[in-house]
Simulated scan of single mutants.
Amino acid sequence: MSVVGVLRKDFKDVRRAKLVWAPAVVYTLFMLLFFWGQSQSTNPDFYQILWGLVGIGGALLIPLIALVAAYLSIAGERESGSIKFLLGLPNTRTDVVVGKVLSRSAVVTAGVLVAFVIGVPAAALLVPDMTFEYGDYVLFAAVTVLYAVAYVAVAVAISAATASRSRAMSGAIGFFFLFNLVWNFLPVGPVQMIGFLSDQFNVEVSDSVTELVYSISPTGAYLNGILKLIMPDRFNAQAGAVVADPPFFIQGWFMVLILAAWVVVPLALGAWRFRRAELG
């Protein structure tokens, strides 16, 4: 069966799940809501819509879409025992992990892209006077898809490393809480801890380093990537100044590399852990 066989079988199974498509529908509704909101403005702002989608998508909906779609991809089959049938075919455990990542990523990508496709005619109908920046819109969609796939890879890795539905769910919730809410939004994240410790020990830490720490999480990389690649003027306004010749590790392209690393590294770790697992 190999990777392609696992992909086809899993895609057919998961695409019927309403729970997988529900968050994508919600994301589409929020997009339409933002377009409608700009239609009420005398000076509609295309980038205000994108930033609204970054906020609601980066903080909640995109991770939710990906985690719901993928956290039971392997753990669910291990608990039910169907994983033995899948491995009884000519598949390696690595084939299973890679196939699951590809199939769940395909479903999530389809849901997200449907929302972006709907957004084009919605903008023309709801906000005809707004200048629609197609190039930035495509780039925004591409980075958002990569962000979603990163969360899929994490969810599949967690699923591969756990033997039950409850543990997979706990792992997915724990990852979301730590690397989304705590890391980037709550006042107890690593950036705040660095600031506290630097004050206590009178050690100066550059803004570039703290920004890199903020961007290590998938959500931080996504937020900074969108700002720097698509909305640099808004980023500079929020930062309070234009940084001349910033270090490479806080530039927009490096944020994309961080997101790509969140795809590759969890996938490798998940496959390694699953190869060593006792399936009973």
Score class of each variant (00 low, 15 high):
91 N>D: 09
133 E>A: 14
111 G>D: 07
99 G>A: 08
91 N>R: 09
117 V>M: 13
142 A>N: 09
113 L>T: 08
156 V>D: 02
49 I>G: 07
54 V>R: 06
20 V>Q: 00
88 G>E: 14
148 A>R: 01
98 V>I: 15
41 S>K: 12
91 N>L: 06
127 V>S: 09
109 T>H: 05
127 V>P: 11
120 V>W: 12
160 A>P: 03
59 A>V: 13
104 R>H: 13
23 P>R: 11
70 A>C: 08
94 T>G: 03
125 L>K: 11
29 L>N: 05
63 P>D: 05
138 V>A: 12
37 G>V: 14
122 A>F: 02
130 M>R: 05
108 V>E: 07
58 G>L: 00
85 F>T: 13
91 N>F: 03
129 D>M: 11
19 L>S: 15
122 A>Q: 09
108 V>N: 06
41 S>F: 08
108 V>Q: 06
43 N>K: 12
73 S>L: 01
58 G>Q: 01
121 P>C: 09
162 T>Q: 08
152 V>K: 01
83 I>M: 10
85 F>P: 12
33 L>P: 10
52 G>V: 04
145 V>Q: 09
92 T>Q: 10
27 Y>C: 04
31 M>H: 01
86 L>V: 13
27 Y>K: 02
56 I>R: 05
118 I>G: 06
120 V>L: 07
43 N>I: 11
43 N>W: 14
66 A>K: 05
33 L>D: 07
62 I>M: 03
137 Y>V: 06
97 V>P: 07
48 Q>L: 13
103 S>E: 05
66 A>F: 04
81 G>Y: 06
131 T>I: 13
119 G>H: 06
43 N>H: 14
96 V>P: 10
77 E>Y: 03
102 L>S: 02
40 Q>I: 01
34 F>C: 10
58 G>I: 04
112 V>E: 08
87 L>N: 05
158 I>T: 06
143 V>N: 02
114 V>N: 00
46 F>L: 03
79 E>P: 00
163 A>S: 15
99 G>L: 03
55 G>R: 07
96 V>D: 00
142 A>W: 02
57 G>Y: 08
26 V>C: 06
56 I>Q: 10
102 L>N: 03
42 T>M: 09
144 T>M: 01
125 L>P: 05
117 V>H: 13
